[in-house]
Write a protein that binds this DNA or RNA. Structure first.
Length: 424
RNA sequence: GGAGGGAUGGCCGAGUGGUUUAAGGCGCCUGUCUUGAAAACAGGUGUGGGGUGAACGCUCCACCGUGGGUUCGAAUCCCUCUCCCUCCGCCA
């Protein structure tokens, strides 16, 4: 949520932010108009309330019956006006809130302007595009051939875009998760195990509601949603808290499954397991002071990148342009790994500095010993997203005989297996 | 699922319609005293929003778990929901 004071004081900044995201800036003027109305209405009703408070206190002390009755009658009229004005004010505030909740974060000046994702900037590519002396298979052929990936039964028990991992395939994914969590712990993040379901208020705080309601799975009788990313419960952790300055930065890592309807992506990426309604992810999340957030962004980037490097994957770093950074983000980078079988770059991580955008919604502040108070900055990044990392590992480490070698760093979790044999 | 109890400031805790403008205590901050500290004493100490001002500030409104209601006036009365505790039942 952006600051209404910023809209008031620097409407041009906000408009430019919207323009850079290719959005209509006229909402800023609407907001200014409604804010003016709101303050006018507020001043009026508060004056009446002040009067009522004073006179009501006097009424308690008045002994003369006639005088007392007269004042009560007067205040009844005042009270009725207050009720009416309060209701008008409520509607105005509701409208204002609705408008402000719909405004995305303002991109930082260094974010490249772009029209769509094709304007993202490839900052660098790490590792060589691997070459094979045989035709590398895409995972949708390789997985079933190895007996570790079962599309039909996933569809049978749940529906399209669901699959079952089996044997060493399931174990490989579990190894990836365990390895990533352990790595991030070493990098200074505290592991959290959170609920996989959250209430509506938590999703509002994280910026997922109201805008992305379509993408969420919701319980049909309670106010409970399946998490679309661990970012949501990790934001919720410190919702409505005043943190001590000396506690910061707080760095967390968590594994959760993620549940998304993917209505927007109907028909896209239907082949294989690249995009499902349920996927696993290890997330990194940082709360810090505003002055430290760019440095924390660099750290989180480096920490996510280290995962790809240790896994021996070929990857590239993209700086997202204004059109492609998420609603919450002020600046963001993606990490994409190369999948030699399906011959494409797969997004396995998106790392964002959210600034105080989420902290405002979630009401997370910190206090310094010298009395300074401010909203924290939050950052989030995947480290990494699961099925796609699994795809890249399978496709990168496949051998001519049809087997798949296990990357060195995963061996401690593989129960002695060093490869997935071709007829598992 | 059933029965009962509870939710008040950073913490403890009083408060069943108007001298409560949330008592008192603890903690914290400032000052006096002291070489320094402790103790003692005095003062201060929440969040959000509005108005005003160059600024220290001044002032008003709201907030006693949530959302409604009754009333001239609600922490206090009524309804709703949430959460916590105790006991019973069921259960991986």
């Amino acid at each position: 949520m952006i600051d209404i004071k910023l809209v008031r004081e620097e409407p041009q900044t906000v408009k430019q932010g919207l323009l850079s995201r290719n959005l209509d800036p006229s909402v800023v003027d609407d907001l200014l108009t409604i804010d003016e109305m709101r303050r006018e209405k507020l001043t009026g009703v508060e004056t009446l309330k002040a009067e009522r408070n004073t006179v009501s206190r006097e009424i308690g002390k008045i002994k003369d019956k006639g005088e007392r009755e007269a004042k009560i009658a007067d205040m009844k009229v005042v009270s009725d006006s207050i009720s009416a004005l309060d209701e008008e004010l409520r509607l105005i505030e509701e409208k204002q809130q609705e408008l402000i909740m719909g405004i995305p974060n303002i991109p930082l000046a260094q974010v490249p302007i772009g029209k769509d994702e094709s304007d993202n900037v490839v900052l660098r590519v790490e590792g060589e595009i691997p070459t094979f002396d045989f035709e590398p298979l895409p995972h949708w052929d390789l997985g079933p051939q190895l007996g570790i990936l079962d599309f039909e039964r996933g569809v049978k028990i749940t529906g399209s875009r669901f699959y079952v991992l089996s044997g060493l395939g399931a174990r490989l994914q579990r190894a990836l998760i365990a390895y990533m969590l352990d790595l991030h712990i070493k990098q200074g993040y505290l592991e959290k195990y959170t609920p996989f379901m959250v209430k509506g208020a938590t999703l509002y705080a994280a910026g997922q509601l109201p805008k992305f309601a379509d993408n969420l799975y919701k319980d049909h009788e309670e106010d409970l949603y399946m998490v679309p990313t661990a970012e949501v419960p990790l934001t919720g952790l410190h919702m409505d808290e005043f943190l001590e300055g000396q506690q910061l930065p707080l760095r967390y890592t968590a594994y959760t499954p993620c549940f998304r309807r993917e209505k927007m992506s109907a028909g896209r990426d239907v082949r294989g397991i690249k995009r499902g309604h349920q996927f696993d992810k290890v997330e990194m999340y940082t709360y810090c002071k505003p002055e430290d957030s760019m440095q924390e962004l660099d750290k989180m980037m480096a920490d996510a990148e280290e995962t790809c490097r240790q896994l021996g994957l070929t990857y590239r770093i993209l700086q997202l342009c204004t059109a492609d950074i998420s609603f919450n983000a002020s600046i963001a980078y993606d990490i994409e790994v190369w999948a030699p079988g399906c011959q494409e770059w797969l997004e396995v991580s998106s790392i964002s500095n959210v600034g105080n955008f989420q902290a405002r919604r979630a009401n997370i502040k910190f206090k310094e010993e010298d009395g300074r108070k401010d909203y924290v900055h939050t950052l989030n990044g995947s480290g990494l997203g699961m099925p796609r990392t699994l795809i890249a590992v399978l496709e990168t480490y496949q051998q001519a005989n049809g087997s798949v070698k296990i990357p060195e760093v995963l061996l401690p979790w593989m129960g002695g297996a060093t490869e997935i044999p071709c007829c598992a």
